[in-house]
């Protein structure tokens, strides 16, 4: 299926957000995930299934002023 991750069109076969995070080798402890403009808490990543056309934002806190 095709989804949009951080503004880029991506083809993926990962079924849910947790699989997506693992497939991308991202550190869950510092990650904020937005699925179709809704923040998904980490405990719900495995239950949040991805569908064609979904929009995902993968964000993290960084240093700033």
């Amino acid at each position: 299926m095709n989804i949009n991750i951080n503004g880029e069109a991506v083809e993926t076969s990962t079924p849910d957000i947790l699989s997506l995070v693992r497939a991308r080798n991202l550190d869950p402890s510092s990650l904020v995930v937005e699925h179709n403009h809704t923040i998904i808490q980490q405990a719900a990543w495995a239950d949040t299934l991805l569908q064609q056309g979904d929009t995902i934002e993968l964000l993290s806190f960084v240093g700033g002023g």
Binding site: R24, L26, S29, S30, L59, S60, F61, V62, G64, G65
Partner: peptide, 20 residues
């Protein structure tokens, strides 16, 4: 203390969690 929120760059080296 201020912090910022950014999109994750998959090509950047992994950073530890600044909030920790």
């Amino acid at each position: 203390i201020t912090v910022a929120l950014r999109r994750v760059d998959p090509k950047a080296p992994p950073q530890d969690n600044i909030l920790s």
